[in-house]
Design a protein around this nucleic acid. Sequence first.
DNA 1: TAACCATATGGAGGAATCCTCCATTTAGCA
DNA 2: TGCTAAATGGAGGATTCCTCCATATGGTTA
Lengths: 202, 202
Amino acid sequence: MVGDRVSGEGRPLRADARRKREAILAAAVDVFAERGIEIALDEVARRAGVGIGTLYRHFPTREALITGAYVREIDLLCDGVDDLLAAMPADEALIAWMQRFVGYVAGKPGMALALKSIVTTTDAEALKGSHDRVHAALGRLIDAGRRDGLIRADASSEDVANGLSGVSLANSRPGTRERANRLIALLVDGLRYNATPRGTTR
Amino acid sequence: MVGDRVSGEGRPLRADARRKREAILAAAVDVFAERGIEIALDEVARRAGVGIGTLYRHFPTREALITGAYVREIDLLCDGVDDLLAAMPADEALIAWMQRFVGYVAGKPGMALALKSIVTTTDAEALKGSHDRVHAALGRLIDAGRRDGLIRADASSEDVANGLSGVSLANSRPGTRERANRLIALLVDGLRYNATPRGTTR
DNA sequence: TAACCATATGGAGGAATCCTCCATTTAGCA
DNA sequence: TGCTAAATGGAGGATTCCTCCATATGGTTA
C-alpha cells in the first residue's frame, strides 16, 4: 500500500539514488509544510532538483511519499520515552508522551496519515522499523505503568497505538491541542480503570 | 470549509434544483461505495444525469459533496439512541451505540471524513443540523449514564464526539471492527473512571 | 393566461495534474 | 579502462479539474 520500491530491504540503493531519495524527502517535508499535501508533485521534484520520473520511481504514490517524509520525525518522537519515565509516574508519562506526540503532529499536514499507515500496516517492509519503534515506545510506557499498578493488566500497545492514531487524525489541525489533550487524558483514564493498585496481590 | 452553496439557509432551492441536488447525492453515495471517493466527479455527474457544472454549483469541492452524501446517513444513526437506553444500562448503551456507529462507517469510503467535518465544524450553516443531532445523541447517552452514576460527572459530549470521530478515522476500512470496538470500550472505561456510584452523595 | 426575470442548467474547453516510457547518463566493479 | 546494471529526467499522452456563459426553466405577478 505504501512502500517505497527499494528501501525496506531488496538490495542496497546505489549512492546517487540514496542522495536523490534524501533530497526528495527533504523537499517533501518543506513543501508539505508550506502548501499542504495536495500540492502537485512536480513542485516537490523541482525543489529537490530531481526529475519527476525519479520521484515516481522512488515513491510510486503520493501516500508513499507522505509516509516516507514523516517516518523519521515519528521515529524521533519515539525517543524521549525514558526521560519521561525517569521524571514522573508511568501513567503521567504516557499522557505526556502522547500529548507531545499529537501536539507535534497537529499542523504538519499528512503526518497523522503517516502515523496511521505506520501503526496500522502489518505488511509493508519499509514501515516495519517505525511500526516497531512506536509499539516499543508505547510498550515501555504501558509495562512500567502496569508494573506499578497504575495501568490495567490487559492494556495492549495495539489498542493504545490505535487510539493515538485516532486522536491524531481527528485533531490534525493547529488549534486543536486542548481538545486533543483532553481526549488523551480520557483514554488513559480508560487504562487506569480496573488497574490493580500497587501492593495488591497480583 | 464544506458548505453547499444554498442548503443551510439562504432562500429555499427552486424545485428543479432540489431534485437535481438529490440526484447528485444519491449518485454520489452509489459511486463512492463502488469506486471510492477519489473517483472523477464527472462520473458522479453522469450517473446523476446532470451536467458537471450543476454538480459544481451545488458542491464546490469534493469535500462538500462527500459530506453532503453522508449527512443523512449520519442523521439516521443518531436515532435509535432511545431504544438502546431502554434496553440496557446507559454506559453499555453508549458503547453499543458508538460501536454500531463506527461499524457502519467502516467500509463507506469518506464517511469518517464526513463525520469529522460534522463533529468538528462550528461554523458552516449546512452542517449545523447534523452537528447538533450527533451531540444530542451523545448528550442523552452521557446524561443518562451520569444520572445513574455510571459515567463521571465531568464527561462532555464534545470530548466523546471527538473520540468517536477519531475511532472512525483510524478504523475506516472494513475488517477493523474488532480493533475499533476495543478502542471504544477503552474510551468508555475512561468515562467510567472516577464516576460517582449511584447512592453516593453528589 | 401571458410575460417576465431570477434562478438553474449543461458542457465546451483551457488549465492543471498525473504518470508512463525510454533514450541517455552514471556508479561501481573487474 | 571498459562494461553493465542501476538510475535519471522530462516529453507528452491521458486524465481530471473547474470556470464560464449562452440557454432553458420555474415561479410570480398582473
